[in-house]
Design a protein around this nucleic acid. Structure first.
Length: 480
DNA sequence: TGAAATGTTGGGGCG
DNA sequence: ACGCCCCAACATTTC
Protein backbone atom coordinates (compact mmCIF):
# COMPACT_ATOMS: atom_id res chain seq x y z
CA UNK A 1 0.00 0.00 0.00
CA UNK A 2 1.57 3.28 -1.08
CA UNK A 3 0.51 6.87 -1.58
CA UNK A 4 1.10 8.54 -4.92
CA UNK A 5 2.05 12.19 -4.62
CA UNK A 6 1.24 13.66 -8.00
CA UNK A 7 3.43 16.75 -8.52
CA UNK A 8 2.14 19.28 -11.03
CA UNK A 9 2.72 23.02 -10.54
CA UNK A 10 3.92 22.58 -6.96
CA UNK A 11 7.50 21.51 -7.59
CA UNK A 12 8.75 21.94 -4.05
CA UNK A 13 9.13 20.00 -0.82
CA UNK A 14 8.68 22.82 1.70
CA UNK A 15 5.17 23.97 2.55
CA UNK A 16 3.66 21.47 0.16
CA UNK A 17 0.24 20.51 1.57
CA UNK A 18 -0.17 17.42 -0.63
CA UNK A 19 3.15 16.08 0.56
CA UNK A 20 2.27 16.83 4.19
CA UNK A 21 -1.02 15.00 3.72
CA UNK A 22 0.76 11.98 2.26
CA UNK A 23 3.35 11.90 5.02
CA UNK A 24 0.63 12.00 7.67
CA UNK A 25 -0.82 8.79 6.23
CA UNK A 26 2.43 7.04 7.13
CA UNK A 27 2.55 4.86 4.04
CA UNK A 28 5.43 4.69 1.56
CA UNK A 29 5.33 7.56 -0.92
CA UNK A 30 5.82 7.43 -4.67
CA UNK A 31 6.37 10.99 -5.97
CA UNK A 32 5.50 11.27 -9.63
CA UNK A 33 5.25 13.84 -12.37
CA UNK A 34 3.20 13.33 -15.51
CA UNK A 35 4.00 15.36 -18.61
CA UNK A 36 0.37 16.03 -19.41
CA UNK A 37 0.57 17.90 -22.72
CA UNK A 38 -2.02 15.44 -23.97
CA UNK A 39 -4.56 16.86 -21.51
CA UNK A 40 -3.66 20.51 -21.95
CA UNK A 41 -4.49 20.75 -25.64
CA UNK A 42 -3.35 24.06 -27.06
CA UNK A 43 -2.41 25.22 -23.56
CA UNK A 44 0.52 22.89 -23.14
CA UNK A 45 3.57 24.81 -21.93
CA UNK A 46 5.35 26.95 -24.51
CA UNK A 47 9.00 26.71 -25.42
CA UNK A 48 10.41 28.84 -22.61
CA UNK A 49 8.21 27.15 -20.01
CA UNK A 50 9.36 23.73 -21.15
CA UNK A 51 12.95 24.79 -20.69
CA UNK A 52 12.14 25.88 -17.15
CA UNK A 53 10.17 22.72 -16.42
CA UNK A 54 13.18 20.60 -17.33
CA UNK A 55 15.37 22.41 -14.82
CA UNK A 56 12.70 22.39 -12.16
CA UNK A 57 12.10 18.64 -12.50
CA UNK A 58 15.83 17.98 -12.35
CA UNK A 59 16.03 20.02 -9.14
CA UNK A 60 13.03 18.26 -7.60
CA UNK A 61 14.47 14.86 -8.48
CA UNK A 62 17.75 15.82 -6.78
CA UNK A 63 15.98 17.13 -3.70
CA UNK A 64 13.93 13.92 -3.45
CA UNK A 65 17.00 11.75 -3.92
CA UNK A 66 18.68 13.58 -1.05
CA UNK A 67 15.75 12.46 1.11
CA UNK A 68 15.88 8.79 0.20
CA UNK A 69 13.20 9.08 -2.45
CA UNK A 70 12.85 9.47 -6.22
CA UNK A 71 10.82 11.34 -8.79
CA UNK A 72 8.99 9.00 -11.15
CA UNK A 73 8.47 10.60 -14.56
CA UNK A 74 5.65 9.63 -16.90
CA UNK A 75 4.03 11.11 -19.95
CA UNK A 76 0.58 10.92 -21.49
CA UNK A 77 -3.05 11.55 -20.51
CA UNK A 78 -3.15 11.65 -16.72
CA UNK A 79 -6.11 9.29 -16.36
CA UNK A 80 -4.38 6.54 -18.29
CA UNK A 81 -0.97 7.13 -16.68
CA UNK A 82 -2.44 7.09 -13.18
CA UNK A 83 -4.28 3.84 -13.92
CA UNK A 84 -1.00 2.28 -14.97
CA UNK A 85 0.90 3.68 -11.99
CA UNK A 86 -1.70 2.39 -9.56
CA UNK A 87 -1.51 -1.06 -11.14
CA UNK A 88 2.27 -0.94 -10.97
CA UNK A 89 2.56 0.26 -7.37
CA UNK A 90 -0.63 -0.99 -5.74
CA UNK A 91 -1.29 2.56 -4.58
CA UNK A 92 -4.33 3.05 -2.39
CA UNK A 93 -4.29 6.84 -2.39
CA UNK A 94 -3.40 9.68 -4.72
CA UNK A 95 -2.85 13.20 -3.48
CA UNK A 96 -2.08 16.40 -5.37
CA UNK A 97 -2.24 20.17 -5.18
CA UNK A 98 -4.94 21.82 -7.22
CA UNK A 99 -4.53 23.55 -10.54
CA UNK A 100 -6.90 26.22 -11.82
CA UNK A 101 -6.68 26.14 -15.61
CA UNK A 102 -10.10 25.22 -17.02
CA UNK A 103 -8.74 22.16 -18.83
CA UNK A 104 -6.96 21.00 -15.67
CA UNK A 105 -10.05 21.44 -13.51
CA UNK A 106 -12.12 19.36 -15.91
CA UNK A 107 -9.40 16.72 -16.12
CA UNK A 108 -8.94 16.58 -12.35
CA UNK A 109 -12.66 16.10 -11.84
CA UNK A 110 -12.58 13.12 -14.20
CA UNK A 111 -9.56 11.72 -12.38
CA UNK A 112 -11.19 12.13 -8.99
CA UNK A 113 -14.40 10.35 -9.88
CA UNK A 114 -12.47 7.59 -11.64
CA UNK A 115 -10.28 7.00 -8.59
CA UNK A 116 -13.17 7.14 -6.13
CA UNK A 117 -15.19 4.73 -8.22
CA UNK A 118 -12.37 2.25 -7.77
CA UNK A 119 -12.10 2.79 -4.03
CA UNK A 120 -8.89 4.77 -4.23
CA UNK A 121 -8.59 7.76 -2.00
CA UNK A 122 -8.23 10.98 -4.00
CA UNK A 123 -7.23 14.13 -2.16
CA UNK A 124 -6.51 17.58 -3.50
CA UNK A 125 -4.92 20.45 -1.57
CA UNK A 126 -4.08 24.12 -2.03
CA UNK A 127 -0.42 24.97 -2.53
CA UNK A 128 -0.76 27.82 -5.00
CA UNK A 129 -3.03 30.48 -3.52
CA UNK A 130 -3.61 32.40 -0.31
CA UNK A 131 -7.35 31.82 -0.67
CA UNK A 132 -9.24 29.54 -2.99
CA UNK A 133 -11.03 31.51 -5.73
CA UNK A 134 -14.43 30.23 -4.66
CA UNK A 135 -13.89 31.35 -1.06
CA UNK A 136 -14.19 35.05 -1.87
CA UNK A 137 -17.30 36.80 -3.11
CA UNK A 138 -18.86 40.24 -3.01
CA UNK A 139 -21.74 41.02 -0.69
CA UNK A 140 -24.06 40.10 -3.53
CA UNK A 141 -22.38 36.73 -3.81
CA UNK A 142 -20.80 37.66 -7.12
CA UNK A 143 -17.17 37.18 -8.14
CA UNK A 144 -15.07 40.29 -7.73
CA UNK A 145 -14.40 42.32 -10.84
CA UNK A 146 -12.58 45.18 -9.14
CA UNK A 147 -9.18 44.72 -7.60
CA UNK A 148 -9.27 46.93 -4.52
CA UNK A 149 -12.31 45.37 -2.83
CA UNK A 150 -10.94 41.97 -3.81
CA UNK A 151 -7.67 42.75 -2.06
CA UNK A 152 -9.52 44.03 1.01
CA UNK A 153 -11.50 40.80 1.18
CA UNK A 154 -8.40 38.73 0.62
CA UNK A 155 -6.55 40.44 3.46
CA UNK A 156 -9.52 40.05 5.78
CA UNK A 157 -10.00 36.37 5.01
CA UNK A 158 -6.40 35.25 4.87
CA UNK A 159 -5.06 33.85 8.11
CA UNK A 160 -1.29 33.56 7.85
CA UNK A 161 0.16 30.42 9.38
CA UNK A 162 3.88 29.68 9.47
CA UNK A 163 4.89 27.67 6.39
CA UNK A 164 5.76 24.01 6.89
CA UNK A 165 9.39 23.03 6.44
CA UNK A 166 10.51 20.37 3.96
CA UNK A 167 10.51 16.83 5.40
CA UNK A 168 13.89 15.26 6.15
CA UNK A 169 13.00 11.92 4.60
CA UNK A 170 10.24 10.40 2.51
CA UNK A 171 9.36 6.77 3.18
CA UNK A 172 10.29 4.78 0.05
CA UNK A 173 8.29 1.93 -1.44
CA UNK A 174 9.79 -1.57 -1.53
CA UNK A 175 9.84 -1.45 -5.31
CA UNK A 176 9.99 1.60 -7.55
CA UNK A 177 7.82 1.83 -10.67
CA UNK A 178 9.46 2.40 -14.04
CA UNK A 179 10.27 6.00 -14.91
CA UNK A 180 11.00 7.89 -18.07
CA UNK A 181 14.30 9.71 -18.08
CA UNK A 182 14.10 13.48 -17.95
CA UNK A 183 15.89 13.71 -21.28
CA UNK A 184 13.28 11.48 -22.92
CA UNK A 185 10.61 14.09 -22.13
CA UNK A 186 12.36 16.30 -24.70
CA UNK A 187 11.70 19.54 -22.85
CA UNK A 188 14.92 21.26 -23.89
CA UNK A 189 15.41 23.07 -27.18
CA UNK A 190 17.65 21.40 -29.65
CA UNK A 191 18.77 22.60 -33.07
CA UNK A 192 19.05 25.42 -32.42
CA UNK A 193 19.73 25.63 -28.70
CA UNK A 194 18.25 29.08 -28.01
CA UNK A 195 18.33 28.73 -24.23
CA UNK A 196 21.75 30.23 -23.52
CA UNK A 197 20.29 33.50 -22.26
CA UNK A 198 17.84 31.62 -20.06
CA UNK A 199 20.55 29.51 -18.48
CA UNK A 200 22.54 32.66 -17.70
CA UNK A 201 19.57 34.39 -16.10
CA UNK A 202 17.84 31.73 -14.04
CA UNK A 203 18.19 28.85 -11.56
CA UNK A 204 15.01 26.79 -11.76
CA UNK A 205 14.12 24.77 -8.69
CA UNK A 206 13.21 25.21 -5.06
CA UNK A 207 16.73 26.15 -3.96
CA UNK A 208 16.95 28.79 -6.68
CA UNK A 209 13.54 30.14 -5.65
CA UNK A 210 14.54 30.51 -2.04
CA UNK A 211 17.81 32.18 -3.02
CA UNK A 212 15.88 34.62 -5.22
CA UNK A 213 13.48 35.44 -2.40
CA UNK A 214 16.30 35.97 0.11
CA UNK A 215 18.18 38.22 -2.30
CA UNK A 216 15.02 40.26 -2.82
CA UNK A 217 14.34 40.57 0.91
CA UNK A 218 17.87 41.76 1.58
CA UNK A 219 17.97 43.96 -1.50
CA UNK A 220 15.02 45.64 -3.14
CA UNK A 221 12.03 44.89 -0.87
CA UNK A 222 12.06 48.06 1.22
CA UNK A 223 12.61 50.22 -1.87
CA UNK A 224 10.13 48.25 -3.94
CA UNK A 225 7.52 50.99 -4.18
CA UNK A 226 10.01 53.44 -5.64
CA UNK A 227 12.12 51.12 -7.76
CA UNK A 228 9.75 48.51 -9.10
CA UNK A 229 8.95 50.60 -12.16
CA UNK A 230 12.55 51.18 -13.23
CA UNK A 231 13.47 48.39 -15.62
CA UNK A 232 17.12 49.43 -15.72
CA UNK A 233 17.56 48.48 -12.06
CA UNK A 234 16.94 45.22 -10.23
CA UNK A 235 14.02 46.58 -8.32
CA UNK A 236 11.66 43.60 -8.61
CA UNK A 237 11.73 40.12 -7.12
CA UNK A 238 11.88 38.08 -10.35
CA UNK A 239 10.03 35.36 -8.48
CA UNK A 240 7.31 34.95 -11.13
CA UNK A 241 8.62 31.77 -12.82
CA UNK A 242 9.38 30.16 -9.46
CA UNK A 243 5.83 31.01 -8.35
CA UNK A 244 4.31 29.71 -11.55
CA UNK A 245 5.94 26.30 -11.14
CA UNK A 246 5.21 26.21 -7.43
CA UNK A 247 8.85 26.11 -6.41
CA UNK A 248 7.73 28.61 -3.84
CA UNK A 249 4.21 29.47 -2.77
CA UNK A 250 2.49 32.76 -1.96
CA UNK A 251 2.05 31.79 1.69
CA UNK A 252 5.81 31.34 2.06
CA UNK A 253 6.42 34.66 0.36
CA UNK A 254 3.83 36.44 2.48
CA UNK A 255 5.31 35.07 5.66
CA UNK A 256 8.90 35.82 4.68
CA UNK A 257 8.07 39.38 3.64
CA UNK A 258 6.18 40.14 6.85
CA UNK A 259 8.86 38.60 9.03
CA UNK A 260 11.68 40.36 7.24
CA UNK A 261 9.89 43.73 7.22
CA UNK A 262 9.22 43.50 10.94
CA UNK A 263 12.82 42.63 11.73
CA UNK A 264 14.22 45.43 9.56
CA UNK A 265 11.79 48.26 10.27
CA UNK A 266 9.73 47.27 13.31
CA UNK A 267 6.68 47.42 11.05
CA UNK A 268 5.04 44.42 9.36
CA UNK A 269 3.70 46.57 6.54
CA UNK A 270 6.17 49.25 5.41
CA UNK A 271 5.42 50.77 1.98
CA UNK A 272 7.80 48.51 0.04
CA UNK A 273 6.33 45.35 1.55
CA UNK A 274 2.76 46.54 1.17
CA UNK A 275 3.27 47.33 -2.51
CA UNK A 276 4.97 44.02 -3.17
CA UNK A 277 2.24 42.05 -1.43
CA UNK A 278 -0.29 43.95 -3.53
CA UNK A 279 1.33 42.34 -6.54
CA UNK A 280 0.84 38.95 -4.91
CA UNK A 281 -2.79 39.98 -4.49
CA UNK A 282 -3.02 40.81 -8.23
CA UNK A 283 -1.90 37.26 -8.91
CA UNK A 284 -4.67 35.96 -6.66
CA UNK A 285 -7.14 38.27 -8.42
CA UNK A 286 -6.14 36.77 -11.76
CA UNK A 287 -6.80 33.25 -10.49
CA UNK A 288 -10.12 34.43 -9.07
CA UNK A 289 -11.06 35.78 -12.50
CA UNK A 290 -9.92 32.67 -14.37
CA UNK A 291 -11.88 30.46 -12.00
CA UNK A 292 -15.10 32.40 -12.38
CA UNK A 293 -14.65 33.28 -16.06
CA UNK A 294 -12.97 30.25 -17.63
CA UNK A 295 -13.10 31.83 -21.10
CA UNK A 296 -10.78 34.61 -19.85
CA UNK A 297 -7.84 33.54 -22.06
CA UNK A 298 -9.90 33.78 -25.23
CA UNK A 299 -12.92 36.04 -24.79
CA UNK A 300 -13.03 39.68 -23.69
CA UNK A 301 -14.53 39.96 -20.25
CA UNK A 302 -16.44 43.05 -21.24
CA UNK A 303 -19.13 42.30 -23.75
CA UNK A 304 -18.95 44.76 -26.60
CA UNK A 305 -15.27 44.26 -27.22
CA UNK A 306 -16.19 41.25 -29.35
CA UNK A 307 -17.02 43.78 -32.05
CA UNK A 308 -13.78 45.76 -31.80
CA UNK A 309 -12.31 46.49 -35.26
CA UNK A 310 -8.95 44.80 -34.79
CA UNK A 311 -6.53 44.84 -37.69
CA UNK A 312 -4.62 42.09 -39.36
CA UNK A 313 -1.02 43.34 -39.36
CA UNK A 314 1.36 40.45 -39.89
CA UNK A 315 4.34 42.68 -40.60
CA UNK A 316 3.72 44.87 -37.56
CA UNK A 317 3.23 41.86 -35.34
CA UNK A 318 6.49 40.32 -36.52
CA UNK A 319 8.37 43.58 -35.97
CA UNK A 320 6.92 43.69 -32.46
CA UNK A 321 7.94 40.09 -31.74
CA UNK A 322 11.49 40.67 -32.92
CA UNK A 323 12.04 44.01 -31.24
CA UNK A 324 12.18 45.98 -34.49
CA UNK A 325 9.38 48.51 -34.08
CA UNK A 326 11.63 51.56 -34.04
CA UNK A 327 10.46 52.46 -30.51
CA UNK A 328 13.46 51.79 -28.27
CA UNK A 329 11.65 50.92 -25.03
CA UNK A 330 9.35 48.51 -26.90
CA UNK A 331 12.22 46.88 -28.75
CA UNK A 332 14.31 46.61 -25.59
CA UNK A 333 11.47 44.81 -23.83
CA UNK A 334 10.80 42.37 -26.65
CA UNK A 335 14.48 41.55 -26.92
CA UNK A 336 14.81 41.05 -23.18
CA UNK A 337 11.89 38.63 -23.44
CA UNK A 338 13.44 36.72 -26.31
CA UNK A 339 16.87 36.54 -24.68
CA UNK A 340 15.91 35.73 -21.09
CA UNK A 341 12.31 34.46 -21.15
CA UNK A 342 11.24 37.33 -18.93
CA UNK A 343 10.38 41.02 -19.16
CA UNK A 344 10.13 43.72 -16.54
CA UNK A 345 6.50 44.38 -15.65
CA UNK A 346 6.52 48.09 -16.48
CA UNK A 347 7.83 47.20 -19.93
CA UNK A 348 5.22 44.44 -20.34
CA UNK A 349 2.56 47.12 -20.01
CA UNK A 350 4.30 49.34 -22.55
CA UNK A 351 4.82 46.66 -25.20
CA UNK A 352 1.31 45.32 -24.69
CA UNK A 353 -0.21 48.77 -25.08
CA UNK A 354 1.84 49.21 -28.24
CA UNK A 355 0.65 45.96 -29.82
CA UNK A 356 -2.99 46.40 -28.89
CA UNK A 357 -3.44 50.14 -29.29
CA UNK A 358 -0.76 51.40 -31.66
CA UNK A 359 -0.97 48.39 -33.98
CA UNK A 360 -4.58 47.37 -33.20
CA UNK A 361 -3.55 43.72 -33.16
CA UNK A 362 -5.91 41.58 -31.04
CA UNK A 363 -4.67 41.12 -27.48
CA UNK A 364 -5.00 37.36 -27.88
CA UNK A 365 -2.10 37.45 -30.35
CA UNK A 366 0.13 39.07 -27.76
CA UNK A 367 -1.05 36.70 -25.08
CA UNK A 368 -0.04 33.77 -27.28
CA UNK A 369 3.40 35.19 -27.96
CA UNK A 370 3.98 35.69 -24.25
CA UNK A 371 2.65 32.20 -23.62
CA UNK A 372 5.38 30.74 -25.80
CA UNK A 373 8.28 32.98 -24.79
CA UNK A 374 7.86 33.68 -21.07
CA UNK A 375 9.40 31.36 -18.51
CA UNK A 376 6.69 32.58 -16.12
CA UNK A 377 3.84 32.08 -18.63
CA UNK A 378 0.80 31.59 -16.41
CA UNK A 379 -2.65 31.25 -17.90
CA UNK A 380 -4.40 33.28 -15.21
CA UNK A 381 -1.92 36.14 -14.90
CA UNK A 382 -1.18 36.34 -18.61
CA UNK A 383 -4.80 36.36 -19.75
CA UNK A 384 -5.98 38.74 -17.03
CA UNK A 385 -3.11 41.14 -17.67
CA UNK A 386 -3.56 41.25 -21.44
CA UNK A 387 -7.24 41.92 -21.00
CA UNK A 388 -6.38 44.61 -18.50
CA UNK A 389 -4.09 46.40 -20.93
CA UNK A 390 -6.53 46.02 -23.81
CA UNK A 391 -9.24 47.68 -21.76
CA UNK A 392 -11.68 44.79 -21.91
CA UNK A 393 -10.69 43.08 -18.65
CA UNK A 394 -11.64 43.37 -15.01
CA UNK A 395 -10.86 46.73 -13.41
CA UNK A 396 -9.11 47.44 -16.68
CA UNK A 397 -7.19 50.42 -17.85
CA UNK A 398 -9.76 52.47 -19.79
CA UNK A 399 -9.35 51.99 -23.49
CA UNK A 400 -8.26 55.58 -24.01
CA UNK A 401 -5.33 55.14 -21.64
CA UNK A 402 -2.70 54.77 -24.33
CA UNK A 403 0.95 54.64 -23.39
CA UNK A 404 3.30 56.94 -25.26
CA UNK A 405 6.43 54.77 -25.61
CA UNK A 406 8.81 57.75 -25.73
CA UNK A 407 7.34 59.35 -22.61
CA UNK A 408 7.20 56.06 -20.75
CA UNK A 409 10.84 55.48 -21.61
CA UNK A 410 11.89 58.95 -20.47
CA UNK A 411 9.93 58.57 -17.24
CA UNK A 412 10.97 55.08 -16.20
CA UNK A 413 14.35 54.68 -17.89
CA UNK A 414 15.61 58.27 -17.68
CA UNK A 415 19.29 57.34 -17.99
CA UNK A 416 18.55 54.93 -20.83
CA UNK A 417 20.30 52.05 -19.07
CA UNK A 418 17.63 49.55 -19.99
CA UNK A 419 17.49 50.54 -23.65
CA UNK A 420 21.26 50.58 -23.99
CA UNK A 421 21.47 47.08 -22.51
CA UNK A 422 18.99 45.53 -24.94
CA UNK A 423 19.27 47.80 -27.96
CA UNK A 424 23.03 48.31 -28.09
CA UNK A 425 22.95 49.88 -31.53
CA UNK A 426 21.49 53.00 -29.85
CA UNK A 427 23.99 53.04 -26.98
CA UNK A 428 25.85 56.13 -28.08
CA UNK A 429 22.81 58.39 -28.25
CA UNK A 430 22.46 61.01 -25.53
CA UNK A 431 19.92 60.34 -22.78
CA UNK A 432 17.64 63.02 -24.19
CA UNK A 433 17.29 61.11 -27.47
CA UNK A 434 17.64 57.49 -26.46
CA UNK A 435 13.86 57.00 -26.32
CA UNK A 436 13.07 58.96 -29.49
CA UNK A 437 15.90 58.57 -31.99
CA UNK A 438 13.68 59.90 -34.79
CA UNK A 439 13.90 63.31 -33.12
CA UNK A 440 17.69 63.38 -33.13
CA UNK A 441 19.50 65.65 -35.59
CA UNK A 442 21.16 63.90 -38.53
CA UNK A 443 24.57 64.94 -37.20
CA UNK A 444 23.81 63.38 -33.79
CA UNK A 445 22.65 60.14 -35.37
CA UNK A 446 25.79 60.05 -37.50
CA UNK A 447 28.03 60.62 -34.49
CA UNK A 448 26.25 57.80 -32.68
CA UNK A 449 26.83 55.50 -35.64
CA UNK A 450 23.12 55.19 -36.39
CA UNK A 451 21.37 55.19 -39.74
CA UNK A 452 17.63 54.96 -39.22
CA UNK A 453 16.19 52.35 -41.50
CA UNK A 454 19.52 50.54 -41.70
CA UNK A 455 21.26 50.10 -38.31
CA UNK A 456 17.99 50.64 -36.41
CA UNK A 457 14.45 50.60 -37.82
CA UNK A 458 12.37 53.62 -38.66
CA UNK A 459 9.25 53.74 -36.49
CA UNK A 460 6.70 51.33 -37.95
CA UNK A 461 3.90 53.71 -36.93
CA UNK A 462 3.74 57.34 -35.83
CA UNK A 463 2.44 57.17 -32.28
CA UNK A 464 0.48 60.39 -32.60
CA UNK A 465 -1.45 59.05 -35.59
CA UNK A 466 -1.72 55.56 -34.14
CA UNK A 467 -3.18 56.96 -30.95
CA UNK A 468 -5.84 58.85 -32.88
CA UNK A 469 -6.60 55.75 -34.95
CA UNK A 470 -7.11 53.73 -31.76
CA UNK A 471 -9.39 56.37 -30.27
CA UNK A 472 -11.42 56.43 -33.48
CA UNK A 473 -11.75 52.66 -33.43
CA UNK A 474 -12.90 52.80 -29.84
CA UNK A 475 -15.39 55.56 -30.56
CA UNK A 476 -16.88 53.46 -33.35
CA UNK A 477 -17.24 50.57 -30.93
CA UNK A 478 -19.13 52.77 -28.49
CA UNK A 479 -21.77 53.58 -31.12
CA UNK A 480 -22.59 50.05 -32.17
C1' DT B 1 -0.55 51.00 -13.05
C1' DG B 2 -1.74 57.94 -19.03
C1' DA B 3 -1.53 61.42 -22.39
C1' DA B 4 -3.10 65.30 -24.67
C1' DA B 5 -6.03 69.15 -24.83
C1' DT B 6 -7.81 72.84 -22.54
C1' DG B 7 -8.21 76.10 -18.75
C1' DT B 8 -6.17 79.06 -15.07
C1' DT B 9 -2.85 81.74 -12.81
C1' DG B 10 0.77 84.77 -12.00
C1' DG B 11 5.29 86.83 -13.03
C1' DG B 12 7.74 89.63 -16.07
C1' DG B 13 8.64 92.33 -20.36
C1' DC B 14 7.14 96.14 -22.60
C1' DG B 15 4.90 100.32 -24.37
C1' DA C 1 2.24 103.18 -12.52
C1' DC C 2 -0.59 100.72 -15.41
C1' DG C 3 -2.59 97.62 -18.80
C1' DC C 4 -1.57 94.30 -22.04
C1' DC C 5 0.50 90.28 -23.73
C1' DC C 6 3.20 86.19 -23.45
C1' DC C 7 3.98 81.99 -21.62
C1' DA C 8 5.63 78.78 -18.19
C1' DA C 9 3.68 76.19 -14.60
C1' DC C 10 0.18 74.00 -12.83
C1' DA C 11 -4.73 72.23 -12.69
C1' DT C 12 -8.67 70.28 -14.91
C1' DT C 13 -11.02 67.98 -18.46
C1' DT C 14 -11.32 64.92 -22.16
C1' DC C 15 -10.13 61.05 -24.81
Amino acid sequence: MVTLVWFRRDLRLADNPALVHALAAGRPIVPCFILDDADAGDRAPGGASRWWLDGSLAALARDLAARGSRLVLKRGPAERVLDALIAETGASAVVWNRRYEPWARARDERVTSRLEARGIEATSCNAALLREPWMLATRQGEPYRIFTPFRTALRARFEPTPPMPAPDRLPAPRRWPASETLASLCLLPDKPDWAGGLRAAWSPGETGARARLDAFLDGALLDYRERRDLPGTRGTSRLSPHLHFGEIGPKQIWHAVKTHALAETGDTDPPGAATFLSEIAWREFSYHLLHHFPALPDVPLRAGFEAFPWREDGAGERAWQRGLTGYPIVDAGMRELWATGWMHNRVRMIVASFLVKDLLVPWQRGERWFWDTLVDADLASNAASWQWVAGCGADAAPYFRIFNPALQGAKFDPRGEYVRRWVPELAKLRDAQIHAPWEAQPIELAEAGITLGRTYPQRIVDHRLARQRALDAFAKLGKT
